[in-house]
Nucleic acid binder design. Structure first.
Length: 348
DNA sequence: ATGCATGAGAG
DNA sequence: TCTCATGCATA
């Protein structure tokens, strides 16, 4: 099917791509998460549980660090570089409950302790017990996982099939758009400049709203730009662009595209307040797996000490939490990805 | 606005 | 198997 991946240099059209960029980050996400008003606030009754778990994790992590002190560490392991959890202005509407316990926040400054969790894995896993301590509450939620997953997988397959079958959007399904800005005003290849992106994102949103266009509309309208290799994008992506919750690289790639759309849209409106090329699409069905809070907390606790569990560890965790292995694997992938987002980038 | 998921490309 | 860009579904 579609084969264009953003990371692939497009040889057939003018869109270029920069292979990699220096991950500038990224205590950002961590900080953001650290101040999220989450379930820990409403769920103080679980404090004991969390604390025990985390202290355990911390202790285990310490052991791990000691055991690995001479281990060469990977440069990209810049996770958990947050330092404080002083409350600050951060997205107040996040619905995700994240772990924000001081002991965890301060227990990770060493990028080298990742890959070797053998020592602690066993112990840690003992604490990854789904229902425990949380009693009945977990019960109702837990059931959503196992049964949903099969369903979700099924539905996604169907969904893919259907889209593949007959939808304008289907054509762009995974046609990842990642061009390179070589024409940007100040955005030269050498200097992606986060501040520029940030201000642009802000301006973009304002102008978009002024045009009376929704994020979804923008995404759809992009296809009308006829830019080679650029199809439509989802509301999610537009939203993430505006809120800077995309990777820096992604932001840089999308900026010229959205900029182009903006100009076009404003031009169109100017000459004839006619049709801001909008339209909506119709059908979509897919169930989403929902990981219950207790399980999520366990995953977060584990992630704090071992962001990259081995396949076997993942399997073990999955079993402990009564989740499908793939769900756990994806969860870790997504968690890692979240840490690399640019919001509140350290370069600010 | 964000959680869970897919799929391409890379290793 | 991982990363990365991106999307559907949903809170």
């Amino acid at each position: 099917m579609m084969s264009m991946n953003s990371k692939q240099p497009f040889s057939m059209h003018p869109i270029l791509h920069e292979p990699k960029y220096n991950p500038l980050h990224s205590s950002s996400e961590a900080i953001r998460r650290a101040c999220l008003p989450g379930q820990s606030l409403q769920g103080n009754i679980f404090a004991g549980f969390d604390e025990t778990l985390l202290q355990r994790a911390e202790a285990l992590a310490a052991v791990d660090i000691v055991a690995q002190k001479s281990h060469p560490f990977k440069p990209d392991a810049t996770y958990h570089t947050m330092t404080t959890m002083t409350s600050m202005a951060c997205t107040p509407n996040s619905s995700s409950g994240h772990l924000h316990h001081p002991s965890v926040l301060s227990s990770h400054h060493h990028p080298g302790h990742h890959q070797s969790a053998q020592v602690m894995d066993g112990d840690l896993l003992d604490h990854l017990t789904p229902g425990i301590s949380l009693g009945g509450m977990s019960g109702s939620d837990v059931c959503s996982s196992a049964s949903h997953q099969a369903h979700a997988a099924h539905m996604s397959a169907i969904n893919q099939h259907m889209q593949h079958h007959h939808h304008q959007q289907s054509m762009n399904m995974h046609q990842h758009v990642l061009s390179h800005s070589s024409l940007g005003s100040g955005g030269l290849d050498s200097e992606p400049d986060p501040r520029e992106l940030e201000s642009f994102a802000e301006r973009f949103k304002q102008r978009r709203i002024k045009l009376g266009v929704t994020q979804a509309d923008v995404g759809s309208a992009l296809a009308n730009l006829k830019i080679p290799g650029v199809g439509c994008l989802s509301q999610s992506t537009i939203c993430r662009f505006e809120s800077l919750t995309l990777s820096h690289n992604n932001m840089v790639a999308l900026k010229p595209i959205l900029e182009a759309w903006l100009e076009e849209a404003e031009r169109a409106q100017r000459e004839k307040m006619n049709k801001p090329e909008i339209f909506s699409s119709g059908d979509k069905k897919r169930k989403r797996t929902s990981i219950a809070a207790p399980e999520k907390r366990s995953l977060e606790a584990y992630f704090a000490v071992q962001p990259r569990p081995s396949s076997e560890k993942i399997a073990a965790i999955a079993e402990k939490l009564d989740l499908k292995k793939n769900v756990v694997r994806v969860w870790f992938c997504n968690q890692r990805q979240k840490q690399k987002r640019m919001k509140f980038s350290a370069t600010h």
